[in-house]
């Protein structure tokens, strides 16, 4: 069992949990993820490691309530426990000195971009960060991101905080201003990552994205997480989750993420009914 040490609402649908998992904390690196299971009827859910504290032995996850399992996870309180917590999984992000790096986080993707931005910053890169959300209430990690960035931009869809528009608007401006950019790292909804890839492709800027296909084991055993990258099929859980954005078949990823739409609805309804019946 893995104890929830801290639980926070970052917004109405985005929650932070700090979980005691000293062995994972010892090994975790930016870009890796965990797979957790709430209880013995639960599914295995992948979550990026949003932060780790080796001294305290904790792993932080930040998640958005989107369906049955994340809704149930959000009901857990400090002091309660999660049954299974496996990690660190996946390849760490490729952190080295690139020069000038742009880190883009959209929606809940701000959480996983944070440790990467921090690591890039620590590796001596100049870091320009762009974070975006639907509105001010959905924004989080502003201070954290600011503290690891040389330049920091905020955008919201409705302009309630920062610039109004999309993260790609800022990126576009940067690219057009002729600024020399050596690396772009983008994590967020698939359409956002696809748009970033399209923008940087023409400029020939190395671009990484972190992919989130549907996973089961997370150890390379099921192949459910396969994504088309260039000419080949990769297992995101072991070969990734970071990939060269210019090689990724984003349309296929979008389709594959929808595979269980109907069942996910049924699962949620079934759970709500059970809750009502007590």
């Amino acid at each position: 069992m893995y104890r929830i040490i801290e639980r926070k609402d970052l917004s109405s649908t985005i929650k932070l949990m700090r979980i005691a998992a000293p062995e994972i904390a010892k090994k975790a690196q930016a870009g890796q993820f965990v797979i957790l299971r709430i209880h013995d009827h639960g599914e295995r859910i992948p979550m990026t490691i949003a932060d780790f504290d080796r001294a305290q032995g904790t792993i932080t996850i930040v998640f958005q309530v989107v369906g049955k399992s994340t809704e149930e996870l959000a009901t857990l309180k400090e002091g309660e426990s999660i049954l299974n917590f496996l990690g660190p999984l996946g390849q760490p992000s490729e952190i080295k000195k690139y020069g000038k790096a742009v880190c883009i986080g959209g929606g809940v993707g701000v959480a996983p971009i944070y440790p990467i931005a921090r690591a890039l910053h620590e590796a001596g890169n100049q870091v320009i960060s762009i974070i975006g959300a639907r509105n001010e209430k959905m924004l989080f990690y502003e201070e954290e991101m600011n503290s690891v960035s040389d330049h920091f931009h905020i955008v919201t869809d409705d302009g309630s905080r920062g610039n109004q528009g999309l993260v790609t608007d800022i990126l576009c401006d940067l690219l057009e201003s002729g600024e020399q950019i050596d690396l772009v790292f983008a994590i967020g909804p698939v359409p956002m990552m696809r748009a970033v890839a399209e923008l940087t492709r023409g400029h020939g800027i190395k671009t990484f994205v972190s992919l989130n296909p549907i996973m089961v084991d997370g150890t390379g055993m099921c192949g459910g997480c396969r994504v088309s990258v260039g000419e080949t099929s990769k297992f995101a859980c072991v070969d990734g989750p970071d990939f060269d954005a210019h090689q990724v078949d984003f349309d296929q990823l979008l389709e594959r993420q929808k595979m269980y739409c109907q069942e996910e609805q049924d699962s949620k309804e079934h759970w709500h009914q059970c809750k009502c019946r007590g």
Partner: peptide, 10 residues
């Protein structure tokens, strides 16, 4: 045993 168990299959 879906939806008693959370993992779907199609």
């Amino acid at each position: 045993q879906f939806p008693e168990y959370d993992t779907p299959i199609k």
